[in-house]
Structure formats: C-alpha cells, structure tokens
Write a protein that binds this DNA or RNA. Structure first.
Length: 876
RNA sequence: GAUCGCGUAACUCAGUGGUAGAGUACUUCCUUGACAUGGAAGAAGUCGUUGGUUCAAGUCCAAUCGUGAUCACCA
C-alpha cells in the first residue's frame, strides 16, 4: 500500500497549512502582490456568485479552478488583481429549499408568516455560505476574501434600488398586464425560467354544437379544461371547407355560453380539424388573436390554479386534476369525438418542475429595447467571446428578446422599491430609505409593492455593484473603495458556464451598458459542462457524480485542478475520469521525485539567473524552459488552459525529467543549474498546481513558508534569450542516444550495458562534449566516433547519424526487414517531395521558406536512403 | 423547423493551409544515482463520406451521413 512506500508525494501534509498562511498574509487581496506590482496594470475578474442552496459540485470546481489559474498568473505577472468573491441569494431556489425544510418540520411559510420565513432564509444563507466558501478554500482558490459580498447585503440592496430608479426614470422599467409564464407554486417566471420538455400527452377532439342546431364543429385541444375560457373559434379565411361558417355562433358544451366563429390566418389549415378554439387568457397565441379581434379575456383559474365560477360545476378543482373529471363529463354527454396520443412539449418551472401556465397578470417588466446598445457594442467587438462562436447564440437570443418579467411573487429577494399611495393613487420609486408619506399628497396611507425582483436583476449588477457603485456608505473603505470603479471597471474577463449565457451574461451586458455606459467586461470565456467518462451528464439518479471534495481527498487539489485544466478545451465537453486524475496525480509524484533527485546532490538552489547558466546541459535546459515559458504565456493569454497545461506537462516530464535529469547524471556540475531552472518552472506551473509548487520551491530554497515569501507573489517567469546552437547540439546527442538504444535492441541487449559501440556523427560535432552523455544514457562502456562503418556489425540509421555495434552472431533477417521498411518509407517520402519540387506551379507559388524546407528535407531523405541502401547491400 | 458544436490511432482527445500529435491501452524489454504513481524501444491513422477552392486541405467552402446542445413552434 502507498503508506508503506517511500518517495511518494503526500499532498495532505502540505495543503493543510499553506492555504491558511496565504490567506492570513493577505496574498489574495488586491495588494497582496505589492512587492511585484507594476504601475497601471490592473486585472479584474468577478466570481460568479454561487447560490446559497447547496454544496460544491464539480462544475464549481471547474469554473473556479480556471478563474484561479488566470488570477494567480496575473497576480504573479505584476497586475493589481481583484478577484471578487461573493454568493447569490438565488430567490426561487433558496425559497424552495427553505420551504422544503419547513415542510419536513410539518409547517409552511404561510403558517409562520413572512417575517419568520425571512429569518429562516437568512439562516439558510449563513449556513450555506459558510459551507460553500470553506469548500472553495479546499480548491486552493485565491479571491479577495475580505471583500466577500452577498447579493442581498445592504450595499447591493442600495445598488438595486438606485439602478431600478434609473431604469424606471428612463422608461425601461414598466408595469403592465402581460401574458406571462405562471407557476402555480412560484408565481411569475421569465421566458428562460421555463423548460420545455417532451411529453406524451393526449389530443382531445371535442364537438361544439352550432347555436342554430344545424350540427357540430370539432375542435382539437391538448388542454380541454381551458375551454371554459374560450371566447371564439377560428378558422383560416381561405379554408374553403369551412369558411361559409364564419360569423356563425356556437354554444360551448355544458355551460352553453355562446361564442362566434371568426377568421384568422394564424390557423394552420393542414393541422387538426381546421377549427381552433381561442382561449385568449390561457394561451400565448390566442392572447394575440384575442387582441386582434377584440375578444373577451376570460381567466378560468386563480393564482393557485383553482378553477373559478366560469367553470360551472367544476369550480374549486385544481386545473390539472380537473382535466380528467371534465373530459369524463364531456364524454358522458357525447361531446368527445376521440382522444389520441399526442407528443408535444410542455413548459415546466425550472425550479420546482411544476407545469407552467400562460396567464394574464400585472407584472413589472424591463423593455426589450434596454438590450439594444449591448447588442451593438458586442457586435462591434467591444466584448469578445471565447470560443467565438458563442456570439451567434448571443445574437440569436438577443434579437428575439421579449420584455423581461422581473417581478416575482416571493418573499426572499429584493422587494421592489415602488410605493403606492392609497389616497391619490400616486406610484413612485424610492431609492433611499422606505418613505412614510406619499411624495405627492403627503398621505401616510401608502404601501410598498409586495413582490420581489428576479434574482438575476441583482446579479446583473454584480460587475460594478461589488465595486461600490450605488452602495451608498455601506462597506466603503472596507468592502470597496472609491478608486475601485476607476481601477477595476470594466472587468477584464468573465469566466462562467455557457448554461447561464442568457440568464446572467446577457443580463450583465445590458445592465452594465445602460447603467454605467460601458460593457461590464472585455473577454467572456464560456466553458463547457463537466460530464462523466462516457460523456453522460452527471446526475444523482445515474450515480455517476464525481464529488470534488472526495476527489481532492483521493488525488489532491493540485491533481484535480491540473486535470480540469488539461481537459478544458474550448468548445468541447469535459469528460472527467479516474484515469485522467491518476495521470495528474502521477505528475505530482514525478515533480516530487525530481526534487528528491536534485537534493541528493545539494540542498539549496539559487533562484534562476540566466547569466549564471554556463554548462552545456544547463544552457540546453534553459533553452527548453524558455520555449515553455513563451508557449505557456501565449496560451494563457487566449485562455487555452489545456494547451498551457500540456506545455507544462511536456516540459517538466518529457524534457526536464526524462532528458534533463538523466543527462545530468553524466554532468554533475550542471545539477545546480538544473535546480535553478526547476525552481523557476515551479513558478510557471504555480497557477495550475499551487500547493506542490509552493512546497517544492520552498524545499529547493531551503526555506519554509512560515519563514519565507510565498511563490505566489514572486514574478512570473519571462523569456530570456534562446540559445539555438545548444538546442541543435543536444538534439544530436539525444538522437545518438536513441539510435544507440535502438541499435542495442537488434542484438537483444535492449536495456543492458554493452562494452562498445560506434557512432558516425556529422562533421564538426563537438565530440568531446557529447561523448559522456551518449555513453551514460546509451549505456555504453566505451563509445568511439567513426567516419566509416565498422566490420561485422549491426547498424541503426537515423536522420543525422548512424550507430554501429560489432557482433559475431545475430539474426540478420530482422535487421534486413527493418531496413527494407525504412527504405520503402524513405522512397515514398522522396517521391512526394520530388513531385512537389518538380511541379512548376508549386515552385512559382509557394513561399520561399516552404520550398527551402522541402529542398532540405529531400536532401536529407536522399542521404539517409543512400545509407540505408548501403547497409542493405552489405547483407546481400 | 432554425442555429451552433462535434466526427482524427483500440480508448479519451490536441492539431493555428506546408511531411499526422499526446496521454492511456497494446507488444518487447529494464529494479539504472529520484520516481514501477517509474524508465527504454516499438507497433498502431482511407483525419465520417463526396465534391470544390488552392502550388498545397485534417485545417477553407459546399453537400451529405452520424452525433450532441440551444432556441422556436406544434391548437
């Protein structure tokens, strides 16, 4: 078991203390990196505030990991960095959680009343906020905790009132009767709070008798209970089957209310019977028809869905329960023609899953025109989506926008800051404290609108309300300061999931633009969902949920973070699996052991100064490091987390450990330099793996975090001059080593040490420098450099060199087979290159550099082919 | 119905017009001065299909098939 193993990295010992020390030292705060801050460099990113409803899930882990990577990078790169934390009151969601708690206790919100209910909701908020933020800390994230906000704290409440007034005064907020989405449990919903789900329902064909007794017409409906609200039947004016009936009257079954047959081109003649019942108060399309034809709007059930007196004997039944009862009665009276299965989509409340009803109600709305400038500015490139294709979804949604219903019949939320006077009927918005008198007639007989605002109204202000905008005096100097709007607005970046593009991102864009005159952020990075290894959505019922806290326990925070980063490819779902986590865990172990190796030789390593890197191997690793720094920075700057993580993995494992450390075994004097480079690469990796990089950096500095300054406030590595010459030399050394190893497999000495081997290198090579490396890693006792093939040997031909190992007895057929295959491959390559180079149009059109590259490739391939053919001749 | 993704090695996926890449798995081998959560060598691809543009296409365009997401409508 791992407990008994030596040399295995144990993250738990390390992660425990570091986070506490970092936080205590205020490294996460905007001036936490004061020692390396550069003037006029600011970076802002807002944390999407988690709901105060539940615990941390893997989606949180992804989004906060990506944010933390960027924030740590910017902080180390000298930016005054604000990562603004906070939590969201999550109106309906939280209210439902508390209602469930009450239900379990055998009571209801109505029983305990609004005041006691809100107390319970605040308690839920406190508990959940504590839980979520302590779980976030386990992820190693570094937001400015001292500035933590809550969407319903007093300052943000002030900002809500101020912005509401501004929007009201500008005519963007209005109150009117609309047909809205009504949840009989949660009240009014905006369009996007309704989820349409496929559902196998029934289509009921019902006979409506003509008033003159001349027969029946048949209408088809999926919601028969709504017929009590019918105020017309319509047909298409061009429908020659039926248009002679236009203007005739029919009598509704059972209740015998008389309605007219009207003509409207909204009817699809191909569908159903051609007759459509019109229920203006309970159907979105019929609402429009009703307005066009000036029909009566009959509402047949109340806010809880209980049928009213328009429904005759069915009054008092609940709308869904009533359906079966009504149909049974209609059938027994002979009105039902037939009932068919009918697949269709039904709208459900996104919070309580209740079936949503179109319902006429007086509500507060934000006019769709409010979004206009935000659409224009985004399309002018003032904000940029990553991946860029999201602008299509943004535009599609924005262009079809309808007025946004912002009033909610809830208790938990920002109460709408509108007051009404019972005496003079005056209505006004109050952005200050609650008034005691009507501002017009001075009456004290006034009341505040009982509804609260959509939760997304206050979160729409998040990019600037957290910076003190509209907060009044609340939090000034502690939670925010007067410079904040100047320094941190607009925010540089938003990172969030695409699932809240419309709910949140679009709302922030329009609110920010209107209220501050500027879009709230420049870059918008939308990440995908985290799915399981088979690409399935994670869900409790499927049992495929990966819990980030359990994952951290098993693999470490660093491993989870690195895995999420390496999988975070723009525009693709993230398939998380144990395999990937293991790979990252192994990577941490590799880094741990690289440090162990370095410290076999010496304990302390200086920080990197390129001028002090003198040995050939040191200069080579420095050159590779520089390439890694350049690529990492470039990928981070365009939010290509996966590419940056892959570069780091490749450099640290594939280049530093597999080659650098191994080569250093033949060049002990280079170890001190490699240690410095390794320390510097811990800085490069730090944003991804904050804990292990801190630990290894400290170990190699012979310091502890308790005494030393954290890696997280040291300058991020920059590119120094890359030595191309030394790269060439080591490419040759490594090619020779691989060639020797390959050659040894021909004599079945794969990994064993052999006495002699000969290598033919290109002229001008620094043989003396190269020799010890090739001997050590090729495991050759004595290496000789030759100009010609030696007698009785096996050969390996590689691009720039050949290896010979003398032998008396070996199976030549394998070697011949291998060489033949090599020959065929080269011939193919040469033919291809020749084809291109002999093509006049290629030579005329292709860039010179491409032509030169191909010429060189042809030359090299031809030379290599000659060698291979020479070898084959020797066996003939 | 509309829009937007995705289709590359057995698997999971990178790939930015210029000779097809990684990790895992696989084959063969190795306890070497850190790491077997390790090391070495190797094998493995009609880049969904068909056209087009181009000197040159996995990459750009069109069509098509498969697959997924979002939005809308369905009386």
């Amino acid at each position: 078991m791992s407990e008994t193993k030596k040399n295995v990295y144990n993250p738990k010992e390390i992660e425990e203390n570091y986070y506490r020390l970092w936080e205590e030292r205020n490294y996460f705060e905007i001036d936490g990196n004061r020692s390396i801050q550069q003037p006029d460099k600011h970076f802002t990113i807002m944390m999407p505030p988690p709901n105060v409803t539940g615990r941390l899930h893997i989606g949180h882990a992804l989004t906060f990991t990506l944010q933390d990577i960027i924030v740590r990078y910017k902080r180390m790169d000298g930016y005054k960095t604000l990562w603004q934390p906070g939590v969201d009151h999550a109106g309906i969601a939280t209210q439902n959680v508390v209602e469930k708690q009450l239900l379990a206790e055998g009571t209801t919100k109505e029983e305990i009343g609004r005041e006691a209910f809100l107390e319970r909701a605040w308690q839920q908020k406190e508990n959940s906020q504590d839980a979520i933020t302590s779980q976030l800390r386990k992820l190693g994230v570094s937001p400015a905790w001292s500035r933590e906000r809550f969407t319903m704290d007093e300052g943000l409440g002030n900002a809500v009132k101020k912005s509401f007034k501004q929007m009201y005064d500008n005519g963007f907020i209005v109150r009117d009767n609309y047909m809205i989405n009504w949840c009989t449990h949660d009240g009014a919903l905006s369009d996007i709070e309704v989820e349409h789900e496929d559902h196998m329902g029934k289509m009921y064909h019902i006979n409506y008798p003509l008033s003159d007794g001349s027969g029946n017409i048949t209408v088809a409906t999926t919601r028969p209970e709504t017929y009590f609200g019918d105020t017309a039947v319509m047909i298409h004016p061009d429908d020659t089957r039926h248009n002679h009936l236009i203007g005739k009257k029919i009598k509704l079954p059972l209740i015998e209310r008389e309605i007219e047959i009207i003509a409207d081109s909204h009817v699809d003649m191909e569908f159903g019977t051609g007759f459509v019942k019109v229920t203006p108060a309970h159907d979105t399309n019929d609402y429009e028809v009703g307005k066009r034809h000036d029909l009566e709007f009959i509402t047949i059930f109340d806010e809880k869905g209980i049928l009213n007196s328009y429904c005759g004997e069915f009054e008092g039944l609940e709308r869904l329960e009533a359906r079966e009862v009504i149909v049974k009665k209609l059938d027994s009276e002979g009105f039902i023609v037939k009932i068919e299965d009918h697949p269709h989509q039904v709208g459900h409340c996104y919070r309580c899953k209740n079936i949503v009803e179109p319902y006429i109600s007086k509500q507060w709305f934000v006019k769709k025109e409010f979004a206009q400038k935000a659409i224009e500015k985004v399309n002018n490139g003032e904000a940029e989506f990553f991946p860029s294709h999201w602008i299509n979804s943004y535009n599609a949604w924005m262009s079809e926008l309808r007025d946004w219903c912002i009033s909610r019949q809830l208790w938990w939320g920002h109460q709408i800051p509108v007051f009404y006077c019972n005496d003079c009927g005056h209505e006004w918005v109050e952005e200050g404290d609650a008034p005691t008198h009507c501002e017009k007639c001075d009456s004290t007989n006034i009341y505040q609108d009982p509804d609260v605002l959509d939760t997304w109204f206050s979160s729409g202000l998040w990019p600037f309300s957290t910076l003190g905008w509209g907060n009044g005096e609340f939090g000034k100097g502690s939670l925010w300061s007067e410079d904040d709007m100047k320094n941190f607005y607009p925010n540089n970046l938003l990172i969030t999931g695409f699932d809240i593009l419309f709910f949140w991102v679009a709302r922030m864009l329009m609110m920010g633009e209107n209220i501050t005159g500027e879009l709230p952020f420049k870059d918008i990075y939308l990440h995908a969902l985290v799915k399981d290894e088979h690409g399935e959505k994670m869900s409790k019922s499927k049992g495929n949920v990966i819990d980030p806290l359990e994952t951290i326990d098993k693999y470490s925070t660093d491993a989870l973070r690195f895995t999420l980063a390496v999988l975070a490819v723009q525009g693709r779902d993230i398939r998380l699996s144990e395999d990937k986590l293991e790979q990252s865990r192994n990577f941490t172990n590799k880094l741990f052991n690289a440090t162990n190796f370095l410290q076999l030789n010496q304990k302390h390593f200086d920080d990197l100064d390129p001028a002090n890197i003198k040995t050939p191997l040191g200069r080579y690793m420095l050159a590779r490091f520089n390439v890694a720094v350049k690529e990492t920075r470039e990928f981070m700057d365009v939010y290509r987390f996966n590419d940056a993580a892959t570069v780091l993995y490749r450099f640290l494992w594939g280049e530093f450990c597999d080659w650098g450390i191994e080569l250093s075994k033949a060049s002990k004097e280079s170890v001190a330099e490699l240690g410095s480079i390794f320390k510097e690469s811990m800085k490069l990796l730090h944003p991804f793996m904050p804990f292990i990089t801190e630990n290894l950096y400290m170990r190699l500095s012979e310091e502890t975090l308790e005494e030393g300054e954290s890696i997280m406030v040291k300058a991020y590595p920059t590119v120094s001059e890359v030595d191309d010459e030394v790269i060439k030399q080591f490419d040759l050394i490594m090619e020779a080593i691989v060639s020797v190893r390959r050659c040894k497999t021909l004599i079945d000495k794969g990994n064993q040490k052999i006495e002699k081997a000969s290598v033919k290198l290109p002229s001008g090579s620094d043989l003396e420098m190269m020799k010890p490396f090739i001997e050590k890693l090729g495991k050759v006792e004595e290496l000789t450099f030759v100009d010609e093939k030696i007698a009785n040997c096996v050969t390996d031909v590689s691009d720039n060199l050949e290896t010979f190992i003398s032998t008396d007895d070996v199976d030549m057929s394998a070697i011949i087979g291998k060489l033949t295959k090599q020959k065929e491959k080269l011939e193919k390559e040469i033919a291809k290159l020749n084809g291109m180079l002999n093509n006049e149009r290629f030579v005329a059109n292709a860039p010179e550099q491409v032509i030169a590259t191909n010429r060189k490739a042809l030359e090299e391939a031809s030379e290599k082919l000659a060698k291979v053919e020479g070898e084959l001749k020797g066996f003939a």
